[in-house]
Amino acid sequence: MSIYRLYCKYKLILEAGIVLSLFSFPWWMPAFYLTLAIRVLFFSILVMSFTFLAGQAGMISLSQAAFFGVSAYAVAITTVRFGIHFPLSVLIGILAAMGLASFFGLFAVRVKGVYFLMITLAFGQIIWGLADQWVSLTGGYNGISGISSPRIGGISFANPRFFYFPLLCVFLACLIFLALIKRSPFGLALRGVRDNPSRMVMLGYPVFLIKYVAFVLSGVIAGISGIFFVYFTGVINPHALGLSQAVWVMLASILGGVESLVGAIIGTLILSAMEVLLGQIIERYMLVIGVAFMLTILFASKGIMGSLQKFIPLRNLINAINKAHK
């Protein structure tokens, strides 16, 4: 409660401070941490897309990594294979994610619960299979490398310091966009569908359409994340849209709490930091992710949909932030 009070009182100052300090990063942060910050920012966008769908619409999607990967591949392929560059390649990337989500959504959105999980898993893996097998286009297992960041008016965005600003702006835009949707009538309708779809039908809502729009929207957001990913790392391979990536996203989201967009960012931060720290110590990184995921499910099993994540100390803070924004 005290955190909540404190937070409410200084909310504006606090948030302005956070945003300003985010903008100041490139000036004083060591390169290593700036790189980490960039990774956290673009993966946060991906995790937010999952959190939005899971928390608001109750759809646990394992296809997000596929949307992320498809737009990244689209940018890589147009750039490297066809010589199509910045504004157009990005547009194609987003359209690819949108198109795929619109297509998957037609089938996935009609079922719920574990069926939805299964179908999104299978769909996502099939895209993985395509990336892995279609060697002439995607480079197969090794993927595509050498995608350079755009250069606009003499500024090369390959420099992390310059890459950071557009990323931060898009990140904030996605965050604000999703937060606005959350409190819009459409957001309320989504939560209605999550809680009780059959009642929603009897209230006259087009349930399929509502879920479908949310699904496509979250696919596009995931695609936006993929574009920054491929520009920043310069490489894309099937691993980026594999099942382990999908699980990573889910884990980050659940750690932060699926109800909260800010939680998505915090969850991404924790996992990314863990990745860096553990990467230096042990080789069995996936094992740690797997065990962390298992423990999260065991201790927060109801938390996937509800609020049984109290064991995570961050929960209080996130709750406070959520409440203040209601």
Partner: peptide, 20 residues
């Protein structure tokens, strides 16, 4: 809608068709 407030429940009902 168990996880929504009474107000939100009723909002959903009154806003329905034309709105969405």
């Amino acid at each position: 809608f168990p996880n929504l407030t009474v107000e939100e429940n009723l909002f959903l009902a009154v806003r329905r068709r034309q709105e969405i």
